[in-house]
Amino acid sequence: MRNTARWAATLGLTATAVCGPLMGAALATPAAPASLYAPSALVLTAGHGESAATVTPERAVTLTCAPKASGTHPVAADACAELRGADGDFDALKSKDGVLCTKQYDPVVVTVEGVWQGKRVSYERTFGNECVKNSYGASVFAF
């Protein structure tokens, strides 16, 4: 009886020593995702000219909208709210009401590159002048 108890104790301790670390790994929770939000990070540029292919950007800002608005964009929170309202569609952005701009033609090209809610974004638009650019999309292109 003594040998049986000794063998049972030895076998139990050996099993605990060998299988214990394996059980701890099996019971550990899976790695949490890095973020619960799809990435939304954009680089917006602006420069004078007809198209992005012929224009050197004069200004550039970054805009991150998830999990919170940040970046070098001067009104990041407002710009992110407008983009969320338009579901990330830059063509769906509306101009501000009541803004009067001259009809002087001094084209300004705006480009947007990056990721919006996990999807690749590449956008380019030419505005008639700086005033029109700043009124369009209220906050998004006002930089």
Rank of each mutant, 00 (worst) to 15 (best):
D106I: 07
L100H: 10
D91C: 02
E50S: 11
V110C: 07
T111N: 06
N3W: 14
A5W: 00
T111G: 05
L36V: 09
G88P: 05
G85N: 14
K133S: 02
P33L: 01
P57M: 05
A32C: 04
A52D: 06
V43W: 04
T102R: 03
G49A: 08
R125W: 01
T102V: 05
Y123L: 08
P74T: 04
A77P: 12
F90R: 04
A92W: 09
L44H: 10
T29R: 14
V43E: 11
V121H: 00
S35H: 08
A32M: 13
A9M: 13
P74F: 11
T111Q: 11
E113S: 13
Y123D: 07
Y37L: 08
A46H: 08
C19D: 07
V99D: 05
R120N: 10
F143H: 02
V110A: 10
E82I: 00
A15P: 03
A9S: 08
R84A: 14
K94Q: 14
L22R: 13
S139I: 01
W7H: 13
G71W: 02
P30S: 11
G118C: 02
A31Y: 05
A69Q: 03
L36Y: 00
A92Q: 13
V99Y: 01
C80T: 08
G88A: 07
A60T: 10
E124S: 14
A52P: 03
A15S: 07
T54W: 01
V99C: 02
T4P: 00
G114Y: 07
F127K: 02
E50G: 09
G85V: 00
E58I: 10
N129S: 02
N134H: 10
N129T: 12
A138Q: 11
D106K: 14
L83S: 01
T29Y: 09
L11C: 09
A46V: 06
G98S: 07
G137F: 04
A52K: 03
V99H: 01
P67V: 14
K96P: 03
P21Q: 02
G128Y: 00
P67L: 06
F143N: 05
Q117V: 04
G128P: 00
A79Q: 04
C101K: 09
Q104S: 00
Y136V: 08
V18A: 12
T10Y: 10
C65S: 08
T72K: 07
A81D: 10
V75M: 14
P67Y: 00
A53K: 14
S70I: 01
T4A: 12
A8D: 05
S70E: 06
P74L: 09
A52V: 04
P107I: 02
S51M: 08
T62K: 09
G47C: 10
A76Y: 06
A92R: 15
C80Y: 06
C131D: 00
Y37Q: 06
A8W: 06
